[in-house]
């Protein structure tokens, strides 16, 4: 965390005078659920990248690959998991609801407290 400035040294009214400095705000500390890859294989469709409100999907544009999650900034909102077309097609029994951390999913949302490397 950067050293906090006094009231004389910051722009008035909470204004942000430079563009693109959200990257300096580590919003990953807010996270309660962590996106984790599961068994279903990523098809690199970039849908999660398109929808992520925090630009926290790491991609390799040259090779058109989805690489993973920027956990410094990911707030754990789970939008990536909910828009993932692979998640939607994971096989399930009729009427079965998959838990959000089901190991069969492509993008799983795992409770931070239960997460193990």
């Amino acid at each position: 965390m950067a050293e906090l400035k006094g009231w004389r040294d910051i722009p008035i009214g909470g204004m942000i005078l430079e563009a693109g400095n959200a990257v300096e705000y580590p919003t990953g500390t807010w996270r309660a659920f962590r996106p984790v890859f599961g068994e279903a294989k990523c098809i690199h469709c970039f849908t999660c990248w398109l929808y992520c409100p925090d630009s926290s999907i790491l991609v390799d544009p040259e090779n058109e690959k989805m690489l993973g999650f920027d956990l410094e900034h990911c707030k754990g909102c789970g939008i990536c998991a909910s828009v993932c077309p692979v998640n939607a097609k994971v096989r399930r029994e009729a009427g079965e609801e998959l838990a959000r951390d089901d190991p069969r999913l492509c993008i799983r949302m795992v409770e931070e407290g239960k997460f193990q490397e």
């Binding site: 906090l4 400035k5 006094g6 009231w7 910051i10 008035i12 009214g13 909470g14």
Partner: peptide, 10 residues
């Protein structure tokens, strides 16, 4: 809580 108070002081 890290900066709101400073903006009130301004």
């Amino acid at each position: 809580y890290d900066y709101y108070y400073e903006h009130k002081r301004q």
